[in-house]
């Protein structure tokens, strides 16, 4: 059992260690396959240090948005207090094959936050629905 913020963190310590590395050597797919989406959500929402640990976990949840990560990603997109999780999760969407319905409007709603908008490069996205969000007026 791994204790974090005074709470028992069920996520395996090996996952926390791997995500804490300065130079990650495993892909999000490998993390998802090995530990599952729930463990990654728990790390994203339940850890603080080092600062990239929750960010990296959030990006991997975004990568698994078509494999059970959608609820967490939508939750982060609606959380103004933690814009970094939304930025990281949206970056992770680039590794997802498909986008669940309703996700693009949630991303669009968040674009009014300039710090969120600066952290994502939707014009480069592999998902046409995200590209349209920033090129519709061109």
């Amino acid at each position: 059992m791994w204790w974090w913020l005074g709470l028992a963190l069920a996520a395996p310590p090996e996952l926390v260690t791997s995500l804490s590395a300065r130079h990650a050597s495993q892909t999000c797919d490998e993390f998802v396959e090995t530990y599952g989406v729930e463990a990654l959500v728990e790390v994203a929402e339940g850890t603080e240090m080092p600062p990239w640990l929750p960010m990296r976990a959030a990006s991997c949840v975004g990568a698994a948005v078509d494999r059970g990560g959608d609820a967490a990603v939508l939750r982060w997109l609606g959380n103004d207090a933690l814009p970094g999780l939304a930025v990281a999760a949206v970056a992770g969407l680039e590794q997802a094959r498909t986008l669940p319905e309703g996700l693009a409007p949630a991303v669009a709603a968040r674009l009014a936050d300039p710090r969120f908008a600066r952290g994502v490069r939707l014009e480069r996205s592999r998902h046409p629905a995200l590209v349209e969000l920033v090129t519709a007026g061109d």
Binding site: S25, Q26, T27, E94, V120
Partner: peptide, 14 residues
């Protein structure tokens, strides 16, 4: 930089 979009294996400094 701030871009995360090309994160296949993300790094925080390289």
């Amino acid at each position: 930089i701030s871009d995360f979009t090309d994160w296949q294996i993300p790094v925080y400094g390289v």
